Computed example of a mutant assay.
Amino acid sequence: MSATATIADIAARAGVGTATVDRVLNKRPGVNAETVQRVLQVVAELGSPPQRGRPRKGANFRFAFVLPAEPSPFVELVDRLIAQAAGEFRHQHITEVTHRLATTDAVQFSAELAQLADCDAVAVMAPDLPPVKLAINELVRTGVHVVTLFSDVAGSMRETHIGADNRAAGRTAGLLLGRMAAGSRDTLLLSSQATRLSAEIERRIGFAQVVEERFPKLKVLRTPDLPADDAGASRALLRFLRGKGVDVGRVAGIYNVGSGSAGVARALESLALTGTVGVVAHDFTDEHRALLGNNGLAYVLHQDIHYCISTAARVLRALCENVRGALNVVQPRVEILTAENLH
């Protein structure tokens, strides 16, 4: 075997993709027996290539964290916690680079994501759209390990998803608000932004499921898509609540699955409904801490963000080092925070 032979050399000789060779060499499932035999025969002829991702003296693993560029309290918190974990990463011989990519144009997002092929591994929070799936698949084919973070891209070749069970989170919100409904207040509102993040879509599904199953007498109204900024969300929700066909006196609670929770609370305050209409939101940001304290939110559903970031790095490093059991990941629990149990 030539000293410069690579996985790409084996793939070309065997007539398969580099991802297939990687799966065969690392004994991962998903390759039929005939292809496995063909790859192993080429390996026998050329010899095994250097294992990608093996620790190199004097060089760190290069990992990319990819987050949406659009501002939101949650993404800003994630970005900040990644930066704070830099020291932890250095001890693990990881050099981290965070990229903020605009999600408004899926094709452009995918093109920029594809440019990260020089990294050893990527953790990505991205919209669940076909161009993004193709970009993830191409990264994997070139030998980059990819995991999704907080929001999954199902059907892609990503190696695992790290984050809470969002459908269970939505069901939890439905259970909390359903139990708050009483008497004539028999209507729950479901609000969100126009989104292609599967995390938010799964939350909506879980919420609708549990209300239908456990509170069949309650009515769920979907608000129009709210702007992501608080001021825009407040104005849009007020227009909806003041419009025809909405009896505010029957609204027991609002589940806001994404950004704009402060705007939702502001709209309710302007209608003198603070404390009367319960609001459930996600993620324990500084803004949500304040809203819990002044009764603007009834509950905040939270996942351990630092755990998810650290787990993503740990899993990606283990994959690079071909550690057995690298994909054994424990999902973070969905915590229910109230004004009484803030920490």
Rank of each mutant, 00 (worst) to 15 (best):
T98K: 05
A169R: 04
Y255F: 15
Q108C: 00
T142M: 09
L197V: 04
R23E: 09
V66G: 08
L268C: 10
R214Q: 14
V264M: 03
V330M: 06
A194N: 12
P68Q: 07
R222V: 06
V75D: 03
L116S: 10
A8P: 00
E138A: 14
K57E: 13
V24C: 08
Q209V: 09
A11Q: 08
F109H: 04
Y307I: 02
N60H: 12
R314H: 11
L134K: 13
T285S: 14
N166R: 01
R90D: 14
A44K: 14
R23S: 07
R333A: 15
A265I: 07
V330L: 07
P131M: 01
A5Y: 03
P73G: 05
E202W: 03
A262K: 12
A102R: 08
L291S: 03
T18Q: 14
R13I: 10
V132P: 10
K244I: 04
G206P: 11
A173I: 04
A265V: 10
L238N: 04
K27A: 14
G293K: 13
V97H: 13
H282K: 03
A5L: 13
L327G: 04
S270F: 00
V329M: 00
L342Y: 04
T95Y: 02
V220M: 11
G163Q: 00
L342D: 07
T274G: 08
R317T: 15
R324W: 02
G325P: 09
L297E: 07
A265R: 04
S198M: 12
H91K: 14
A14T: 08
L177P: 10
E212Y: 02
M1A: 12
P227D: 01
L113V: 10
G178D: 07
N328H: 13
N322R: 14
V36M: 06
I162F: 02
P130W: 07
L46I: 14
I94S: 05
A85F: 02
T187S: 06
V147N: 00
E200I: 11
R235N: 11
E70G: 07
M125A: 12
R62Y: 09
F284W: 07
V220S: 05
E202G: 02
L316W: 05
R185K: 15
L316M: 12
L319I: 06
A228S: 14
R203Y: 03
I7P: 01
T187L: 05
L77E: 11
A117C: 02
A168F: 10
E70D: 12
A290V: 13
L218C: 07
L113Y: 09
H302E: 15
A339Q: 12
A168W: 00
L81G: 00
A236T: 13
E159P: 01
G263W: 09
F89C: 10
F74I: 06
A194M: 06
G253Y: 07
N60W: 04
A164R: 11
N294C: 13
T104R: 11
A64Q: 03
A86R: 14
L77Q: 15
F240I: 05
V146G: 01
V280D: 07
K219D: 13
L149V: 05
A59W: 04
V16Q: 10
D283C: 01
